[in-house]
Design a protein around this nucleic acid. Structure first.
Lengths: 193, 193
DNA sequence: CACGCATCTTTACACTGTCAAGATAGCCGC
DNA sequence: GCGGCTATCTTGACAGTGTAAAGATGCGTG
């Protein structure tokens, strides 16, 4: 622990270093050699923990997704009703990426967009934010006695997801312009239908 | 023309070569030197036409956006009513990217997402697809005598855009999974409200 | 015709990801 | 406690990348 590293917890240090670089100078400046240097370790050391640059990036993406999930869960848990939970989750979804457009680009850019959909890589229905949305939605329709067929449910969820994700995407794509006060304009009910 | 090039229309040739590489082996394999090689030209030749790799990419993106716009316009023009035009445009929007997920990644990935929003780079409201959407929407509410305040109009448009773009994004992100038959599930009316 | 300028080539450099071969050291069975 | 195994890390090398500087080339305009 004292002179830790060297034999300590590289891997996590590499992930942290990666986050630092992204935060300070943007994703496009991230390189294997820089993270290695930041950890004061040779440029090939990362290969003991990640087979690829790709794999390092996926690990960092998972880390960002964790932060993202914390905010979504917070929004859901603090909401008084399941309806408000659904709406607030949407707000948090967009708000998170409007605060950190670079994170949006980092998570949903390039070839690795699917990859960091953590455990079941080929099963996006395991993507944590999606799972949370689904559960919150089910709570909502159950608690309010709303009857929907399976198909209708899928459509509802997809629409909720798509509008939040689309808004986030547009906001992050077009820089400042779309970041007018969307919260005031898109009301609670609007988001729900 | 005969032995054209060398002094002919490089620039366009570079863009075409770039498209070819992207189509054949994906965006991530695109490099300045490869496009140059494909045009049988030295690796620094592109710098006579583009100050940057970035600038080449923007030109290629514009080219893709042109194709995209052609499809959107076709959908709008062929629709019998302005209402159907609005819906079909949404369909085309998603369909285009579901057919070419690589184009989605190429257009909306990395640092250059804003850049190719062609003429007024810092004014996304000039982004051609957005303009088309806006006009189609205005036709729709005018022809049907629908009264909406300016603010409501903005929200309507943003919602339409966000759901189409979000759907496209989700479809392209998560690979195959979301590409269940959404056309059947998301009906005309659904897309409109 | 000659000049200028856009275009293109050559050369060079720093940086990148990746790999192979070797060093190092902690942990295991004995 | 000791020898070896294995995970970890270093060193050195290589091909590919973007980019800049300096020179060649040739077309169009004066």
């Amino acid at each position: 622990m004292s002179d830790s590293y060297h034999h300590g917890n590289l891997r996590q240090a590499l992930i942290d270093a990666g986050m630092k670089i992204i935060n300070e100078s943007g994703e496009e400046t991230l390189s294997l050699r820089k993270v290695a240097a930041l950890c004061e370790v040779s440029h090939a050391a990362p290969y003991a923990h990640f087979k690829d640059k790709e794999e390092l990036i996926e690990a960092i993406q998972s880390h960002v997704t964790d932060q993202f999930m914390k905010e979504l869960e917070k929004a859901v848990n603090e909401a008084p009703t399941s309806e408000k939970a659904l709406v607030d989750m949407g707000r948090s979804y967009v708000a998170f990426f409007m605060r950190r457009p670079d994170y949006f680009k980092f998570l949903f850019s390039g070839q690795n967009i699917v990859a960091h959909i953590q455990p079941g890589k080929d099963h996006p229905e395991d993507y944590p934010p999606f799972v949370l949305l689904k559960n919150t939605y089910l709570d909502y329709i159950n608690e309010n006695g709303i009857k929907r067929t399976k198909d209708e449910q899928e459509v509802d969820i997809l629409k909720l997801w798509a509008s939040a994700h689309g808004l986030a995407s547009i906001a992050c794509m077009s820089g400042v312009e779309v970041s007018f006060d969307w919260e005031k304009k898109i009301s609670t009910e609007e988001l729900l239908r």
